[in-house]
Amino acid sequence: MSQDARIVRALMRRALNEILRVPGGAIPGVLAPTIFMLGLSSVFSAAARLRGYHADFRTFVVPVGFLQGAGFAGAATGVNLARDIEQGWFDRLLLAPAPRGVLLTGIVASASLRALLPATMLLTVALVLGVHSPGAAGLVLAAGLVMTIAAAAACWGVTVALRFRTQQAAPLMQIGSFVAVLFTTAYAPHRLLSGWLQAVSDVNPVTYVLEGVRQGFVGSVSWGHTWPAMLSAAGLLAFFATFAIRGMRRTGAQ
């Protein structure tokens, strides 16, 4: 294993250790998507009586929970980085003989892995409650999309953490993914959305990611829904990674 890979692995292990050693900070993020799914489906279940939903409301919103979990994992990564900056640990990390890109990769990759925890919790609870299984192909696709979105959200979190250098910026880290996931077909099929939300969801790349994750739950996996989802997720990661890389470079130059 190369030196860079060892550094990435060490940073990932450190981030994952925090989940076990600081459970007070990690458990809410793991449980939140499940709670959100249960809450939404309990509160708005009657909405599925409207024409246009091709599934019960719980099945319809499970994929929303997947992407929210990815967003929370990314934000948590940003918050943890802000804490490391506040406490001086990140400055010591920057002094280490490791390229900035490798440090960023380790931090972001930990978010991708971390996002599988809330997704697993959510999927287990959803299946127990009778949500339709998406099948092996649907699951693999969902996992890949969730990990990519978590990485994109982590890049945003890292960018904000490096800019504000305080944990008080946590809401800014969370709001990005929160908005991106909800201004889609999250709550209702496209034809039931009001006009302005239809327009926003049409240009929001996360809509295509959401539909890509959702397809297995409400029907079958098709290439027609899969390629726009993969392309959108990759595009989002590339976009936010650009800002995170720039932030790391500037931090090193200060």
Binding site: F44, F178, V179, A186, A188, S194, W196, L197
Partner: peptide
């Protein structure tokens, strides 16, 4: 930047709820 989320999150949630579920 820290005050804004107190109103931004619920405002956005309000917009999404109304935009998505107005027919309920």
């Amino acid at each position: 930047q820290f005050l804004a989320p107190l109103v931004a999150f619920p405002s956005l949630f309000l917009a999404v709820n109304v935009g998505g579920l107005h027919r309920t």
